[in-house]
């Protein structure tokens, strides 16, 4: 198998994409789960405010999602653009 410089670069973009998305998914997954947990706890204590709490939860999760989306964007850039 002959490997040219371009092959090496292309291979590196794929490995980079895999690492970016894989490692990048860890944080948001844990963070969003933590937020969701606290929201459930709060709804358990104060069920009347479930709507407000769910809204707040979703806003917080969306923010915590952002780094996962950065990872996705970087992975897609590495695969399709670079």
């Amino acid at each position: 198998m002959e490997i040219s410089g371009a092959d090496l670069v292309r291979a590196a973009t794929f490995i980079g994409a895999g690492l970016a998305m894989g490692l990048g998914a860890i944080g948001p997954g844990i963070g969003e789960g933590y937020v969701g947990g606290k929201a459930c706890e709060a709804i358990g204590r104060n069920p009347d405010e479930a709507g407000l709490l769910t809204r707040t939860m979703l806003v917080a999760q969306a923010v915590s999602e952002s780094t996962g989306i950065y990872s996705l964007v970087v992975a897609l850039l590495l695969i399709f653009v670079v």
């Binding site: 794929f14 980079g16 895999g18 894989g22 998914a25 997954g29 789960g33 947990g37 929201a39």
Partner: peptide
Amino acid sequence: AAGISMGFGGIGPGVGNGLTAAA
């Protein structure tokens, strides 16, 4: 890289889902 992406990528959501269900 597909294996690396899915492998590492499964860790966080797995833990997070557990935290939510725990609470």
